[in-house]
Nucleic acid binder design. Structure first.
Length: 417
DNA sequence: TCTGGGGTCCTACATCGT
DNA sequence: TCTGACGATGTAGGACCC
């Protein structure tokens, strides 16, 4: 019998890797004496190191007794928790929770500020470890990546489990940190799978497992369904992914719009053909800050003006450091009642100049009501281009004042640039 | 008990030129 | 000359993510 040779297409295997309690785990490497204790990261502005060094001069940080660390119950000020160690999570404390609420749940938790430089250092390290083993890696922030296992030697063994184990082991050897990995036919399922067995777990999901392992999960587990979509689905008596999959696509489109409805239907059936994207360009850069206390445009004019200028300088510095220029400049502010207002303006040429940004952002500011106290101010630059690519463009000049709504007289308060 | 900072993407709407 | 369709572009806001 004649046999035709055929190309065997390997099964698509995509991994999602999530570092376990990343920010907290990085801190624990520095303060190993806190291992096993409830620790939350976030809020604090003051370096804990400095405080401890003052109190325990001459002794290594790893020897400072746990009782010396600041506790959540003593925390004052605004802020939310970035992450919590697993012992702290047992008290119900978790990411994005307000400090005050967390203090009620677990007053004895130790609170540490975020050390972004250290976190970024570990982030680079674990990603480079992964790339040495599997080169197709998509960055999803400091503590997450997608990895395409499909063509990697050994990437198909046990559905990807063998390679996932190797990556886990290599990261631990290089950093002392653990991670959780989900391997599945696509990014959507891989992302859900990485949550199945945390911390330090590996979950492998195949197409045939979707009905048994994915459909029983709440709709909120789908990456892209947030609190709003969840609430609406609940109102429509849909709570699980399986219940969503059982709906007619036209019904979902009717309720959520063409794009979202169709996407929801695909997601519920585990369909997702998004590739693993190894390179991407930023779309915008911004800086924003929440004030220690609400500020008023009239009473706190000087303070606001100084903060505003500083934000513009920081965005400009970010752009310059990373080699980008932009042509849409905007502002964002949050009032004391948490309403948000944004305004932006596109100018003729590209810029990364702090004075130009300050001037155009100042014009945007004149178009928002400023009678109410403010809690946050932000400055954004969008429509980015690489500095070299934009070189041929005309030089940046602030656009002439356009026919926007009339400024309120009070709006001038942040002063001239 | 109030809710950070830095992003992306989507939608709706206005405006403008053809 | 008027009207409408339409695509491109800018703007504002919202949802969502880490």
């Amino acid at each position: 019998m004649e046999r035709k040779s055929r190309t065997v297409t390997p099964r698509r295997r995509i991994a999602h890797l999530d570092m376990d309690a990343f920010f907290a785990s990085v801190e624990l490497l520095r303060y190993p004496q806190l291992k096993g204790l409830p620790v939350v990261i976030g809020g604090g502005r003051r370096k804990v190191d400095e405080m401890l060094v003052e109190r325990y001069a001459g002794r290594p940080l790893s020897e400072v007794p746990p009782q010396a660390f600041p506790l959540l119950k003593d925390y004052v000020g605004r802020g939310v928790i970035t992450t919590a160690t697993y012992p702290a999570r047992q008290f119900g404390v978790g990411s994005a929770m307000g400090m005050m609420k967390a203090a009620k749940l677990c007053p004895q938790a130790i609170v540490l500020p975020v050390d972004f430089d250290e976190v970024r250092r570990y982030s680079r390290t674990f990603k480079s470890v992964i790339r040495e083993i599997a080169p197709l890696v998509e960055d999803r922030g400091v503590d997450e990546v997608y990895i395409d296992f499909t063509e990697v030697p050994g990437g198909q063994r046990e559905g990807g489990r063998v390679l996932a184990r190797l990556i886990q082991k290599s990261i631990f050897e290089a950093t002392g940190l653990t991670c959780s990995i989900g391997v599945a036919p696509n990014k959507l399922i891989a992302k859900m799978a990485s949550e199945f067995d945390k911390p330090n777990g590996i979950s492998v999901v195949f197409e045939d497992d979707i009905q048994t392992r994915i459909w029983p999960l709440p709709v909120r587990k789908i990456n892209g369904i947030g609190p709003k979509a969840e609430a609406k689905l609940h109102r429509l008596h849909i709570r699980t992914i399986g219940e969503m999959a059982a709906q007619d696509v036209d019904w979902l489109v009717g309720n959520f719009g063409r794009s979202t409805g169709a996407w929801m239907h695909d997601a519920a059936w585990g369909r997702d053909d998004r590739p693993v994207v190894t390179e991407s360009e930023p779309v915008s850069m911004s800086r924003e800050t929440t004030f220690d206390r609400d500020l008023h445009a009239v009473r706190d004019r000087a303070e606001l003006g100084a903060i505003f200028t500083e934000l513009c300088q920081k965005v400009a510095a970010d752009l310059q450091r990373k080699g980008y220029v932009g042509k849409t400049i905007g502002i964002k502010l949050r009032y004391d009642d948490f309403r948000i207002a944004t305004r932006d303006q596109t100018i003729e040429g590209f810029t990364a100049d702090p004075r130009t940004i300050r001037q155009v952002a100042g014009q945007c500011l004149k178009r928002v009501p400023l009678k109410q106290p403010l809690r946050l101010l932000g400055v954004r630059v969008g429509k980015l281009a690489r500095e070299g690519d934009a070189a041929a463009a005309p030089p940046a000049a602030p656009a002439p004042a356009t026919a926007h709504r009339a400024a309120e007289p009070i709006a001038d308060l942040f002063g001239p640039a």
